[in-house]
Structures are given as structure tokens and as C-alpha cells.
Design a protein around this nucleic acid. Structure first.
Lengths: 241, 241
DNA sequence: TATAATAAACGTATTTTTTACATTTATTAT
DNA sequence: ATAATAAATGTAAAAAATACGTTTATTATA
């Protein structure tokens, strides 16, 4: 089925029908590099081009459930961090149909995801600065998601969602440097992160990147809950970048 | 047309059709009180109950345009501050149809709006703490919008959107006290607000609330633009309320 | 025309937070 | 035993936030 044919499709022709889709902007942190999961479209429209992973919202699910469904399908993971970004509803954003998309961004612990599933779906992890052009308005979605990620990360400890269960302080610093695209001072960063009182030192060491080894920390979900309920105002980074 | 009949309506019965609506959470600041514009439904479903102002998104407009259309219809105003809040898409949120709603909040300068239009539409301004229960999931929308307003107002000079062209410092302080539901120290507040360098003193005085009179300030749109482009990190209120 | 009343305007000292910056430490490989 | 490597640490200076009381401009009235 090619694109031209597809345009004659009953669904696409029905101008009274408005479609509701979701698109997922999926972030992962892999070996010090922030990456995005995109896939090569194997169906029309725009077969062969790169695009975000999406789906129509089904009649028996809400938009969040739709996102979780997609994320589970493609990564094998459940209960991962997702947040609605915004809707995209320009009249001609989708050449085939009048379709609004509810974009949602997700942060996944890249070590835990199912790589076979990803491959099976024709999906690839791209470092953010090597991202190909994406179909439709997906480039805009990515840019918006990145902006949101940066703004939110300043005030909310999102970063942990992207890390493995145990991680070192140098690792998490690297993550924030990657998010903000900025070198951070190790002493100040450590003070800041530890002052949140969300981390517990496992006393074990990761020696993969130094002879001395760096202590492995774990995120404390109990303290995190408390943190969330109190609200937040702990800039990781101050003064407008 | 009553609700029961309405349920037999072709549109509502068509389970394959997903509707896309917007709902507007419209804030105004009237005489030191933060208010919300709601209206009494004159049509089914839920005739007679209070609800937010909404509309289906038309095929020739995007969601932002839909919001502006509604806002113009009901207040007579154009180019007012609106921001998408989030979508509401629970399966049974609307008893009549499978309908997702893109909620948008708006801040209007209450002095400028067309009161006749508001009345004509059966709409009323309610102080936030006297708000009646609203239909569907509109109470949740309001709660979410208020939370967003509070969070955003901490870091971004939203408040000006709610004020008349000229306003005094005591007035704007009152507005922030109303938003945060908290007394603020006048000296510190003034320092903070003036340090943003967004206001110009008109040298005129408003003497309606004191013998001495308070200087009238105006918001400088040029400086505001610059402010927005630089980004923002000026908490009006710190330390988690 | 002096006085009282009222809300607006203002300044400073203290505390807290952020920033800048260099040395020591634990461990492994040689 | 020594060299090499990245991790860990502390402190002083600057900036921002907070707490707090007095003076000022104006109007109404005595």
C-alpha cells in the first residue's frame, strides 16, 4: 500500500473524523550519552522515514494508558516515567488525516529495557546530536521535549529515572552535564545532589572507570515520595543556564 | 432535547468516533480576589449544572485557535494569555461520548473584558473559594490549572496578564498573595518585583485606597520579551510556599 | 491651618545559598 | 615501592533571601 493509495482510504477521506494519536519521545542515557529512541516507518504514510513511536488512542484506554501500552510493547518495561508534553493539532500536521497527537515524553533506564523488542520494531537509539530528521512535526516534538526535560530537571530530580538502580556520583553528574550541555563543578554538584537527601550510599564501589572506584548510590523511593509531596524548589542548576 | 434523547443521538452512539474538545479555565483578578469564569449549561448533557466553557475543536482550526475563538466569543478579547494545561481522556469522562478534552487555562485582564457578552452566555465570575461543583471532570481541571498557575507564577511573571494596564505595587502584591494564599512582606516583595526590571513607574498615583496614593506602574512589553528569551529563574516565592 | 489618620515607601543587618577553586585519597598496574 | 588515575573532600567569598520598624505623602477633620 503506497501513500497515494492510502489517501483514498475510507478513514483518511472521511473529513468528519478527527483522529487522536499519541507520540512518544523516549529518552535513554547510555554510556554518558543522552539518546532518543526513534523508528523507521515500515508503513504508510511516509514509509521509510524516521519517526517517533506512536499509536492511535484506543476506545478502551486513555492517553496515558496508550503511552504505557506503546512503551511496554517496544521496551518491555512497565511503570516508567512518562509525562504529557503537549498536544499537536495543526490542521495539516498529518498529510493523510485530521489527526491530533498527544505527545508524551518518557525516561527509561536503558540498562533494563528489552533490546530484542526494540530491534524487532525497527527502532534505534540515536544520540541526540546525531538524530536524523523526523517525519511530520516530530522534530518539533523532540525539541519541545528536550526543553521540557531541561526545565524540569532544574527543579525536579528526574535524572534518576534514566539511571540504573545503582549509580555513582560521577555518573549522575555526567547525566546532568549531558542534559544541560554544560560542564558542572564536581564539588558543588555533589554537595547539591547529596543535600537533596534522596540517595543512600551502598558502600559498594564501581571500579570500571577508575582504580580508586566510585561509591555506588541508590535512589531512595520513600524519600522521593516525601520530596514530591512537599513540593520542590531545588535547582540543580541556577541562573538561567 | 433532554439527556436521554441526546444519548440516542447518532453522534453520541457512534462508538467509533472520538471527539476532541477544549475546555477553558479562565482566571480573572477582580478587586483583590482571584476569580474563575464558569457557566451554567443551557444544553444537554448536564443542563443546569455549572461547567467550564468549552467547544469541540473544528476541522479548520488547531486547539490553540479553538481556545482563542471561545475566549473571544465569551470575553470579546483577543491575544490573551493562554497555555495548554493537559489533556483529559478518561474513557468515561463524558457520559455521552468518547471525548478527549484539551484543557487550556487563560489569564484575562478582567477590567477589559466585555461583561455583556459574558452575561449573554450565561457565564459568571466566581471567587475561587466559592466555586460551585462543576460537571464532568471540570473540578479536576480547575485544581490542576490552579496548581499550574501557582507553579508557573513562582518563576514567571504571569501575574501581569491579570492586571489592568496600570497598577500599583500593593495591587500586584495582593494578586500574588491571592495566588499563593499567603501574606507576603511588602518590602521584600517590592524589591523582588522591581529587580525584575519589567516595570516602569508612570509617576501617576492611584489614590483610591489611601490618602498618600500609590504609584501606578506599567508593564514594559519590550523588557518582557527580552526576559522571556533569556529564560527565567526569578522565584517570586521561595522555599516551597 | 494644625492635627490625626492612613496606607505607601523605604533600608539594613542577618542568614542562607551559591559559587569558585586545589589538594588529598584509594586503588591498581608496573 | 612507585606511578598513575579518577574520586573524594573543604573553605572562603559573593550573592540572594529574609526579617524587621520608621518615615513620608496626602486627605479629612478639628
Amino acid at each position: 500500500m503506497d501513500f497515494a493509495k492510502n489517501q483514498q482510504n475510507r478513514w483518511y477521506q472521511n473529513k468528519e473524523k478527527m483522529f487522536v494519536a499519541i507520540d512518544c519521545i523516549i529518552f535513554g542515557f547510555d554510556n554518558g550519552v543522552l539518546k532518543l529512541l526513534v523508528f523507521k516507518r515500515e508503513i504508510e504514510p511516509l514509509k521509510g522515514s524516521w519517526s517517533l513511536i506512536g499509536s492511535f488512542v484506543r476506545f478502551d484506554e486513555n492517553s496515558g494508558e496508550a503511552a504505557n501500552r506503546i512503551l511496554k510493547d517496544i521496551t518491555g518495561l512497565e511503570q516508567i516515567f512518562t509525562e504529557e508534553l503537549k498536544t499537536y493539532s495543526n490542521i495539516n500536521r498529518d498529510p493523510g488525516a485530521r489527526c491530533i497527537s498527544i505527545a508524551q515524553y518518557a525516561l527509561i533506564p536503558i540498562d533494563k529495557h528489552n533490546k530484542d523488542l526494540v530491534e524487532k520494531h525497527g527502532a534505534f537509539w540515536f544520540p541526540l546530536n546525531e538524530l536524523p530528521n523526523l517525519a511530520l512535526d516530530h522534530d518539533t516534538m523532540v525539541a519541545d521535549a528536550l526543553e521540557r526535560l531541561r526545565n524540569k530537571a532544574k527543579f525536579f530530580p528526574l535524572g534518576f529515572e534514566l539511571l540504573p538502580k545503582s549509580f555513582t556520583l560521577p555518573q549522575i553528574q555526567l547525566l546532568y552535564e549531558e542534559i544541560f550541555q554544560k560542564k558542572l563543578d564536581a564539588r558543588n554538584f555533589r554537595k547539591k545532589i547529596l543535600s537533596l537527601e534522596l540517595l543512600t550510599n551502598t558502600k559498594k564501589k564501581d571500579k570500571t572507570s577508575s582504580k580508586k572506584g566510585a561509591f555506588l548510590y541508590q535512589f531512595d523511593p520513600e524519600k522521593y515520595k516525601k520530596f514530591k509531596s512537599i513540593g520542590f524548589d531545588f535547582p540543580i542548576l541556577k541562573n538561567n543556564i
